[in-house]
């Protein structure tokens, strides 16, 4: 009861903000899930991002591309405040999730990260069983009231990540014992298990072979139905295959952003053209 009393106002506030945010749409009518305005990031004295304005559209895949060191990961990590774990990192500007500023002091990072999940470049399953890996998030956030409920969440997440058939007989086996591609899908399942609204992926396929990559790409395409996805990638083909929107970063500046199709067929900026045609990067 007391639990509900504390939960309700917060939930209500969140819903209210969400309603406000839901009304935010882009010029061409797509609803906006996250929005960065004048985002500047410094690592110590070194500035890594300069006034980045970028809208992340709801239930679309946005790809971040650009040469190494241009700030793609930095921007991605701003979106769920993973940069908080780096002492020397300072973030300025506004980043909103459904209209709510995620750097507002009243925001609980834990709750934010439950809504904006993350998949890392290198598969990093915990040294626990497959089941425990997926159950980790729901347990922390108290999403399951009973063991059967937790079982259902685990199974459903593994299913959505396209891994269930391969591991259903050995959920107690260690997650570290899976192949690289399976591990990465396990990490995706782990992220899905807390029912996030946005999933951030930092080069999720860079440690995988082509077949495992194809599976993960297929998965990303399916996940788009329910989730908003931001993916950092070095592969132009991958961006073309999985994303609807592409943003090109160069030296900490967002050079241009647009529908993936247009971006690859006729980029507006000279630098984008050079990068896409492989003249630098």
């Amino acid at each position: 009861m007391s639990m509900d009393a504390t939960m309700n106002p917060m939930a209500a506030a969140a819903a209210e903000i969400a309603d406000m945010g839901a009304s935010a749409v882009t010029a061409d009518g797509d609803p906006i899930k996250m929005r960065g305005e004048k985002v500047c990031v410094h690592y110590g004295d070194k500035q890594a991002l300069f006034d980045v304005d970028l809208d992340i559209r709801k239930r679309q895949v946005t790809a971040l591309i650009g040469p190494s060191g241009c700030g793609k990961s930095t921007f991605l990590r701003c979106l769920n405040r993973m940069n908080d774990t780096i002492d020397i990192c300072r973030v300025a500007g506004d980043i909103t999730l459904d209209g709510m500023n995620i750097y507002d002091p009243s925001i609980d990072v834990v709750e934010l990260r439950a809504r904006v999940g993350m998949v890392f470049q290198k598969p990093n399953p915990f040294p626990k069983s497959i089941y425990e890996n997926v159950a980790y998030g729901p347990r922390i956030h108290g999403l399951a009231r009973s063991k059967p409920e937790l079982d259902d969440i685990v199974a459903a997440s593994l299913q959505k990540a396209g891994l269930y058939e391969e591991v259903k007989d050995r959920l107690d086996a260690p997650g570290t014992g899976l192949s690289g591609g399976q591990q990465q899908r396990l990490c995706i399942a782990r992220a899905i298990a807390v029912s996030p609204e946005v999933i951030l992926m930092d080069e999720p396929c860079s440690a995988l072979d082509p077949i495992a990559t194809a599976k993960v790409e297929e998965l990303i395409d399916e996940l788009r139905e329910n989730y908003t996805i931001v993916i950092v990638t070095h592969s132009m083909q991958q961006a073309a295959r999985v994303s609807q929107r592409t943003a090109f970063f160069h030296l900490g500046v967002l050079v241009e952003e647009g529908p993936t199709q247009d971006m690859f067929t006729n980029p507006r900026d000279r630098r984008t053209q050079d990068y896409i045609t492989g003249r630098f990067g």
Partner: peptide, 20 residues
């Protein structure tokens, strides 16, 4: 990377230490 993975799921520092 394990600490990051846990933090990325919304675990607090003490949860990360205790559970991972």
């Amino acid at each position: 990377s394990l600490r990051d993975g846990s933090a990325g799921l919304g675990a607090t520092k003490s949860e990360t230490i205790r559970k991972v």
